[in-house]
């Protein structure tokens, strides 16, 4: 079935130009251009990555730091435009990449719920309908009219998670979000994600906790230095990934 593929990533590469000196002023730039010193170090955060996520998948991405997991999520979310290749996403996306994007620390939580909701493309009426649900989930009713700058980071994450998961998105993209908050809240988040999945949401998750990936995902892609090292069934890939851990330990 053609339509069951929610996310298709086709041979995506993401290249960054790491300029040796950053030319942020016109003068510097022109001088460098005249002298022929405009050099860039090319850096590929992703190289020829392909993956397919089907409807109802709980898809995991694993890999060491700097392997390109977050970059891939951002490419899928439309934040980065890939240097090569293409990305197709069917349906609505709720990106949970670094929670609280678009929060204004000077505004109160109430005002931020509306602002952030519209950043995610919700209508004010819909937010009003769901307002109580958001507040209850975040358990922060007493602090609704306090400016966000007076919140602890855990409290900010709670609000952000509550807003981002209030819709029933077709695709939920989650980057390390379950590592925020205390363990009770983490359990609550996991529960909410399972609920969403039961409602037909496809989830793409990045996590450093291999146990969490094993527990929640059904398919996994393992990225290494921007390339796909291994992809497939959760058990096979996770075993191999864990073997890497033992391998390096054995080597040292």
């Amino acid at each position: 079935m053609e339509n069951s593929k929610m996310i298709e990533v086709n041979h995506v590469s993401m290249r960054f130009n790491l300029s040796k000196e950053k030319h942020e002023s016109l003068k510097e730039y022109l001088l460098a251009a005249v002298k022929g010193k405009l050099q860039f170090d090319e850096f590929y955060a992703l190289r020829d990555v392909s993956l397919e996520v089907e409807k109802g998948d709980f898809y995991g991405l694993v890999g060491l730091n700097g392997s390109g997991k977050s970059t891939l999520l951002k490419v899928i979310a439309g934040v980065y435009k890939p240097s090569a290749g293409s990305v197709t996403v069917r349906g609505s996306i709720a990106p949970l990449i670094e929670l609280g994007a678009g929060f204004d620390m000077d505004l109160t939580a109430r005002e931020n719920i509306y602002l952030n909701g519209t950043v995610l493309g919700l209508t004010p009426r819909y937010i009003s309908e769901k307002f109580d649900e958001i507040v209850d989930f975040s358990e922060l009713r007493d602090f609704l009219d306090v400016p966000l700058k007076n919140y602890s980071s855990g409290m900010v994450s709670r609000i952000a998670f509550a807003i981002a998961t209030i819709t029933k998105p077709d695709v939920l993209i989650a980057d390390e979000i379950l590592s925020v908050g205390d363990f009770l809240f983490q359990e609550k988040c996991e529960k909410r994600m399972k609920e969403l999945m039961a409602g037909g949401t496809t989830v793409l998750l990045v996590s450093h906790s291999i146990e969490q990936v094993e527990r929640m995902c059904n398919k996994v892609t393992w990225l290494e230095r921007g390339r796909v090292r291994m992809a497939g069934d959760v058990r096979t890939v996770c075993e191999a990934y864990k073997a890497l851990d033992q391998g390096t330990e054995a080597g040292t």
């Binding site: 204004d104 000077d106 505004l107 602002l115 519209t118 950043v119 493309g121």
Partner: peptide
């Protein structure tokens, strides 16, 4: 049209601040 509410909210944020 899709982002009109965001536009409105950003303006009202600027106004409040």
């Amino acid at each position: 049209w899709r982002y009109r509410y965001l536009l409105y909210n950003l303006i009202s944020r600027d106004f409040k601040l």
